[in-house]
Amino acid sequence: MATVSMTVNGQAVSGEVEGRTLLVQFLRENLNLTGTHVGCDTSQCGACVVHVNGDSMKSCTMLALQADGAEVTTIEGLAQGGEMHPMQQAFQDNHGLQCGFCTPGMVMSAIDLVAKNPNPDEATIREQLEGNICRCTGYHNIVKAVQQAAKATGG
């Protein structure tokens, strides 16, 4: 066991983990932040995406110890003062989610996408979301949501 410390959603946290503990396990099991999901075991689905030092990251693909000292944001950390983040709001407005399981990872990826491509066209959005699998929505409304959020955040 080793001690790991990081900042998660603005709060300093630390915990005891095994060397093999993944960041997603640390978030879900140690911190009870169960909004970040696990949908696969091959780093394909993106249900686990969080932000690590501002970049979207598959938290199943990183050891907790690798995130030592990092700034981590999860889906639970997006809404501010009871107001959803514009991306969250856009997903609701456009019915960009059904079962909600892929949603946290999808929203976290989409925020990073828009941050890096403030004015994405449909093809860019589709290509950039290639690492996030959704079985429910057929992506149509997710694409619309990302377009709305990009506009709303001044892209």
Binding site: T34, G35, A79, D93, L97, G100, F101
Partner: peptide, 20 residues
């Protein structure tokens, strides 16, 4: 109508079996 269930799913407050 926008969905009533969306808020919990969008804010990471869904309650799936593995969350229990």
């Amino acid at each position: 109508l926008k969905r009533k269930e969306d808020n919990r799913f969008l804010t990471g407050k869904g309650n799936y079996t593995d969350d229990i």
